[in-house]
């Protein structure tokens, strides 16, 4: 054995396992820590809320404790038919969002795939994106009244322009070599669009939909608070009239929970539908 390739005897090292530190740049933490920390933030939040309610900095009627809000939530469902309001709100979001997707997905894909389509629509879409949707509320109220049509219209124009832009960008990001591969295998334009561009962009399109669905919930509350007959926002405005702060807070809680549930469902759908992606290995 040459000197250059001398092997060192294995020495028994001291236990040099790196010590777990709480603050470590970008390094993973144990799953148990993650869970504990995730729960801890909520415990802390409810504790501060409860303490604030007890302390009397605000009158009890304006700042009910978490227990009171949960009770209000229970009675809302059992005695005041709140489930109907929730379902109406969910329906409004789903229906308007489905309409928006029905327009935005094909249009965004065509804009991302063909420069000519983009050149035609892009100046129009970009301009609309800078018009805040709530500024249309007075107009929509005059056109459609205070019914469902007004809410659906607001939700529709609230998300569609962003949805189109995001989908067009994701379509543009499809690698040119994937397209050229199909083209040099003899793919026609329609075949390339159907068998490469759409499947390559689809995972990111679903992510864009998940993000914009969250925005849709925001506009729902705005729509229901400004002109309300039924829905979660309508319940909250009724509660305001009777100073039922606990009910208002219960409404906020439900909206948050619904948002969380839909986000989770779309995440699960993404994982199921796109298992072939690197990120799901």
């Amino acid at each position: 054995m040459t000197q250059a390739l001398r092997t060192l005897p294995a020495t028994r090292a001291k236990d040099t396992r790196p010590k777990l530190r709480i603050f470590e740049f970008k390094s993973d933490i144990p799953a148990s820590w993650r869970l504990t920390l995730g729960v801890a933030v909520w415990v802390l939040f409810f504790a501060i809320w409860q303490i604030a309610a007890w302390s009397g900095v605000m009158p009890a009627i304006l700042l009910p404790g978490p227990g009171k809000v949960l009770t209000a939530l229970y009675t809302l469902f059992t005695e005041q038919g709140f489930l109907g309001d929730v379902l109406i709100s969910v329906w409004r979001v789903m229906f308007s969002f489905a309409l928006a997707c029905a327009v935005a997905v094909p249009l965004g894909i065509l804009m991302g795939a063909f420069k000519s389509v983009e050149a035609f629509f892009s100046p129009f879409v970009s301009a609309w994106r800078y018009l805040p949707a709530p500024s249309f509320i007075p107009l929509l109220l005059m056109w459609f009244g205070a019914g469902d049509a007004q809410k659906l219209a607001l939700l529709f124009i609230g998300v569609i322009w962003f949805l189109i832009t995001l989908i067009a960008d994701h379509t543009k990001a499809v690698p040119k070599d994937l397209i050229n591969t199909s083209v040099t295998l003899g793919g026609s334009r329609w075949q390339v669009l159907r068998t490469v561009v759409v499947p390559a962009a689809l995972p990111n399109i679903v992510i864009a939909m998940r993000q914009m669905l969250a925005v849709s919930w925001t506009y729902l509350v705005i729509a229901e608070i400004t002109a309300a007959d039924a829905g979660i926002g309508a319940m909250m405005m009724r509660a305001k009239r009777f100073l039922h702060v606990d009910q208002i807070m219960a409404g906020i809680l439900v909206i948050g929970l619904l948002g969380l549930i839909f986000d989770y469902l779309l995440r699960a759908l993404h994982r199921r539908a796109f298992q072939y992606l690197d990120e799901y290995s």
């Binding site: 050229n180 390559a200 992606l277 690197d278």
Partner: peptide, 18 residues
């Protein structure tokens, strides 16, 4: 223009992941 008779292999990985 491109056609089936002239197939191409690229430097980047072009297997369709789906």
């Amino acid at each position: 223009g491109p056609a089936r008779e002239r197939g191409m292999v690229f430097q980047s990985y072009t297997s369709f992941p789906w």
